[in-house]
Design a binder for these strands. Structure first.
Length: 737
DNA sequence: GAGCACTGC
């Protein structure tokens, strides 16, 4: 008989477990004024607008259709009233009315994201003359799905009073009063509307995630709020003294309300940052999850995860819920899959088996789908996930979570411009987030493959993204939004001086900034593009070289991590399939060949499968290309200008943006980067892998086991000095020797 | 001679 190995756990009964008993909302104000009652003023007004819109936009829609919107909304109202937040409506609205900025803390299931904007709409915070309500989300899918839901609850067609706006997909109109958008999208709106006059309220949701864009928005909104208040005060003063001309020439401006929403309890920092804004607490609604820690450290977390999966599988009824295992990356997942198959083969034949279901971002959509389908009879799903399952996707049916306590994190060394990607311990808040994934539908259990004492040693939170990435793109956007003092900007967590300097220097070298650090005309032009500055510089150069078509295509191709999907067990097969597109000058031209082949194959599914091409990523490439073509047309650049087969022209054009990403072959067959003198290797996935051109330029440097240059092309060493005389004058000397 | 967490515009 099969006797499985066991791992012993302690049963924690500390604050980690979540209660399902909290059903009513509770609002506590940290400081400030008690909310006072307000008349419900604009409600009728805005409702009238709704009918007007329906008549204008969709008069072909029958009255019956409008009635059905109302009917659905009526039904949903019953559900809405059952949400924890519904009871806190009055104090929430009052708090927001009487304070310019409010922090709302509401855990999973509180309903804050869908309800608070509706409360504000009812309270008159959106009208045609003074703008509406913006709600940001870190992710596209969230912005879209929440907007759809809220449109139903409000009883209006999507894109009417309720809409969304994300890249490539805008479902909003001039009538939209509640707009859900990605944080990156709002950041772009600031470029066109620096005072965000179209909004009375901006809600930053999921602020605890501290995405780069939410962090920048926080600082910008603080400035905008102050400027709008100053503007109103000045007008009031002018009116009193009779100066300032006639009022008609003034655009209407209201005070800007900021609502920062966070799902974690450490809202104090947000409050401090926003001048002691009051914190409003709303109860969440989650099922109880029992947390277990191991009594011994686990030397091999894959092995441990396999043993615990089996334990959970054997000790619980097969239809009693699935298992979600958090792992570091594709490698872990594929190895764990093998371990589970191995364990299955030892289980008695009549016993239910484990069904490993991998999910990670690079996995093609078709293969991801398995995770969302119920397991066939006689199987229990063991979902093997990266931290994609922490926030980005929610998998139904999970009752058990196994947390290895690790994830891969990107870091960035500003001094040498090197990114790294390494396995690291997670933070306490990540551990809690993972635990919560077991309690979405019913009470559950979470098995942490580390000791309670190790948990206590974890950092409270992860390092904010702003401290972990190259800031060139965000800095050019800040400059283009009128923020001149980048170093003095009020960051909630300031990035290192070296990181800011590095970004400024890069922009200076690209001629986007002048000697005084002001944005140049070229810089303003570059900021129009939703691209890293080095890419927009390439597009700019391409109009001079006559290869805009090629530049747009390659830049679009570089906008996805990987065009190919390579399963571990089919490396050789996929390598030979990829060789068909290979260009002797390197990856940039190889990608171009691939795009041509893809277009010739009409993006055929089978063709993609046979060539290991990730179809989802290729569709993204085409979307980016379409956007860039549109942008070029708008800026009066011919996007179809082609240099034909003159590949040197294309590569020289790229050097205009990548002269700081060059490396020279050394006698020991390694490469040395010109910028920072780092020893680097051509990435094994490159078409130049194993070849040794005397000089290369690369898209990025990534440190994993060693320093790799990814997306590499071969160049003539003499081109480098021509491309960057300003920054690399001394290198041009060394090249002559 | 050997590898790529997750977002976003």
């Amino acid at each position: 008989m099969y006797t499985p190995q066991k791992i012993v756990f302690s049963d924690n009964s500390d604050d980690e477990t979540k209660s399902s008993s909290i059903a009513s909302a509770h609002v506590a104000q940290q400081n400030g004024h008690s909310p006072h009652k307000h008349k419900k003023n604009h409600h009728h007004h805005s409702h009238g607008r709704h009918h007007h819109h329906d008549k204008d936009q969709s008069h072909q829609k029958s009255k019956k259709n409008q009635k059905s919107y109302a009917k659905i909304a009526e039904k949903l109202l019953v559900q809405r009233k059952g949400l924890p937040i519904y009871g806190a409506k009055e104090p929430l609205v009052g708090g927001i009315k009487s304070n310019s900025t409010v922090i709302v803390v509401g855990e999973t299931g509180s309903g804050k994201t869908t309800q608070i904007p509706q409360f504000l709409l009812e309270a008159g915070f959106a009208n045609e003359s003074c703008g509406g309500i913006a709600v940001t989300q870190p992710r596209r899918v969230a912005a879209i799905s929440i907007a759809k839901r809220v449109a139903e609850e409000v009883g209006t067609p999507l894109g009417g009073r309720v809409g969304y706006s994300v890249r490539f997909d805008d479902m909003s109109s001039e009538y939209t009063q509640i707009k859900y958008l990605t944080d990156g999208m709002l950041l772009r709106e600031v470029l066109l509307d620096p005072m965000l006059k179209r909004y009375q309220v901006v809600v930053l949701d999921e602020a605890h995630e501290r995405t780069l864009r939410t962090d920048i928005l926080m600082g910008m909104l603080k400035q905008i709020q102050k400027r709008r208040a100053d503007m109103i005060a000045k007008r009031r003063k002018d009116r009193r003294s009779g100066t300032g001309g006639n009022g008609a020439e003034h655009e209407k401006v209201t005070n800007l309300k900021i609502v920062v929403m966070s799902a974690t309890l450490d809202a104090e920092r947000f409050s401090k940052y926003f001048d002691n804004a009051p914190i409003l607490y709303v109860a969440g609604r989650q099922h109880h999850v029992t947390v277990y820690n191991t009594l011994e450290p686990q030397p091999d977390y894959l092995d441990a995860a396999n043993i615990v999966s089996t334990q959970v599988h054997l000790e619980n009824p097969v239809d009693g819920g699935d298992v979600l295992v958090f792992l570091a990356g594709q490698d872990d997942i594929e190895n764990m899959e093998k371990l589970i198959h191995e364990t299955n083969s030892h289980l008695p034949e009549n016993m239910a088996k484990m069904l490993p279901c991998p999910i990670f971002a690079a996995l093609p959509t078709a293969q991801q789908a398995k995770v969302f389908q119920p397991a066939p009879p006689g199987f229990r799903k063991i979902v093997l996930a990266t931290n994609i399952a922490e926030t980005s996707v929610t998998i139904p049916g999970i009752r058990y979570v196994i947390d290895t306590g690790v994830h891969k994190v990107r870091d960035y060394d500003a001094r040498v411009g090197v990114e790294s990607l390494q396995v690291q311990p997670i933070s306490k808040s990540s551990a809690r987030q993972r635990t919560g994934r077991a309690g979405r539908e019913a009470p559950g259990a979470c098995y942490r493959l580390y000791m309670e004492s190790s948990f206590q040693e974890l950092d409270d939170d992860g390092i904010p993204e702003i401290k972990r990435c190259n800031l060139a793109m965000v800095v050019i956007q800040m400059k283009a939004s009128g923020i001149s003092d980048i170093m003095g900007f009020e960051y909630m967590d300031p990035p290192s001086k070296a990181s800011l300097k590095n970004a400024l220097l890069e922009l200076y070298a690209l001629a986007a900034l002048d000697d005084h650090g002001h944005l140049t005309d070229l810089g303003r032009w570059m900021a129009e593009f939703p691209l890293e500055p080095s890419y927009s510089k390439v597009i700019y150069e391409s109009q001079k070289q006559g290869c805009t078509k090629e530049a747009i295509n390659i830049v679009s191709l570089l906008s996805v991590d990987s065009i190919f999907y390579i399963p571990n067990d089919k490396r050789d097969e996929s390598m030979s399939a990829q060789k068909k597109f290979s260009h002797s000058d390197g990856d940039h031209l190889t990608y171009l060949n691939l795009l041509d082949a893809y277009i010739q194959a009409n993006g055929d599914k089978d063709w993609c499968r046979d060539h290991f091409v990730n179809i989802r990523n290729m569709q993204h490439v085409l979307n980016v290309r379409k956007q860039l073509v549109g942008l070029c047309n708008r800026l009066n650049i011919d996007p179809n200008m082609s240099c034909g087969t003159s590949t040197d022209t294309v590569l020289k054009c790229f050097l205009a943006g990548f002269f700081h990403h060059c490396a020279l072959l050394q006698p020991d067959n390694t490469y040395r980067t010109l910028n920072g003198s780092q020893t680097t290797y051509i990435h094994p996935g490159s078409s130049l892998f194993g070849k040794r051109p005397p000089a290369i330029f690369y898209d990025q440097l990534v440190f994993t086991n060693k320093l790799h240059a990814r997306s590499v092309s071969a160049i003539d060493p003499s081109w480098i000095a021509t491309a960057a005389p300003k920054l690399y004058g001394h290198f041009s000397k060394s090249l002559k020797n």
